[in-house]
Design a protein around this nucleic acid. Sequence first.
RNA 1: CGCGGAGUGGAGAAAUGGUAUCUCGGGAGGCUCAUAACCUCCAGAAGUUGGUUCGAUUCCAACCUCCGCAACCA
Length: 482
Amino acid sequence: MTQNFYITTTLPYVNGEPHLGFATEIIRADILARHFRTRGGKVFFNTGTDEHGQKLFLKAQEQGISVKELVDQGSQRFKDFADTLNISYDAFVRTTNKTHMRAAQKFWEVCDENGYIYKKNYQTKYCIGCELEKQDSDLEEGEQGLQCPIHPHMNIEIIDEENYFFAFSKFEDQLLELYAKDEGLVVPDFRQNEIESFVKGGLQDFSISRLKEKMSWGIPVPGDDEHVMYVWFDALVNYISILGWDIGQSMFDLYWKEGETFQICGKDNLRQQSAMWQAMLIAVGLPHTDKVYINGFINGPDGKKMSKSLGNTVAVDYILDIYGVDALRYFTARHVNNHEDTNFSIEIFHEAYQANLVNGIGNLTNRILQMSSSYGVEPVMRPESQYNNEALDSYDFNGMMNAVFKLVGEMDQFITDEAPFKKVKTDPEAAAQDLQKLLGQLWQVAEMIKPVMPDTYIKMVDALAKNEKPEEPLFPRIEISK
RNA sequence: CGCGGAGUGGAGAAAUGGUAUCUCGGGAGGCUCAUAACCUCCAGAAGUUGGUUCGAUUCCAACCUCCGCAACCA
């Protein structure tokens, strides 16, 4: 397969700290990007930050800085995060970039020309206490109807305003057709079923603008000075704005039209990515995404949702600090369930690290290279075309890693069974042969883990080339204090 | 009857219409090349109740329990 491959994460909203969930998403995207590059295809890997909307506007006011300053900081934080995780992105889009804003406006115009945007009255609920608009889900049922949980004694005001709407409801049939295609759209299939039944249940048009006088931090609606775009509408366009869709850049044809397009997101984004965004693409006459991959959530050890009070953002820093990037990348590929939720605790992480990286790959590398160097075995060169991670072609991260550790286990067993460390005393020839075989297999391990653990790959290649065990263990043993 | 997901040894996962596999943890032994690592063996499991079947963990039905979502949290 030498097809062009376009891959993108969702854009995290800069109003927050990078957390484990997003780390999972971006690491997995990176693994696939590296995988397809290694396979010889052209890859375009997009990520970035979502930077408009009311929350940011209010937060900047609160902190007494300009919104621009706030989003610059936030965006940088996510970019640093991506760099720390060794993410090989080709583009980092910011939705406040001029090029993106221009594309979003063009997208709006085409949608409008095609008759999918209209204006209508919209009722919002507003809590005077918070001075914020509220969704029904933000409110709770009280004695006098809905009330704000923070200000239960204040009434909720109903505000009428005119907004622009996107005619989502017109795309029901076309979306269902898209899901019904042989190759499907959503991975895994149970998520596809979920979105399908959601769409079958009927779609409601959604609001895509906000009054500028109330909230100015957004992209101006073309031809209407009083409105700015609602963040979602603007943010989704990033997937093609980065390719220069609006100015007819060849990148767009190369990747979006002719390439295989792949989006990865958390399960909370199922609707936005696999229904709303797909409808928007149809509305402007563009090809839909080829695959939308849905991750589960990372939960706390008790299976409950992680919250800020549990400090999972601290956990990411802590993990990187103690265990290193490759360990986190490893965990993401192997121990975070492909599609279901995963319970996380530092103990679970530690166990995985110790058992498989320290005792597994790290120890195996040492024992093989120790023997091969001290017995004077000829180094084995990098084999031709050893790269074969079939499981990754079908986005099976868990399966791919299991294949690696199956091989590692077989190698450990081979050493015990054949005992080259004994043979070397009686039949050095045979011992050398055993080690040649093991070195070849170690190469294979290195090639397999390359997209997942790029730093470790380099260390292993280096050690294999020198035919000496690494000066520092690949994965140092870490004592955990409980 | 709002929608969806999940229930497998102490923990986490996998496969499968016919001896249920792997990792961690527990027990016993082996080895000495290696990071107190590695190998072998042992104990220990299918939420409940029905149905289909020669036979079900697997297919079907009902029920129970847990979890997520219900339109701006990956």
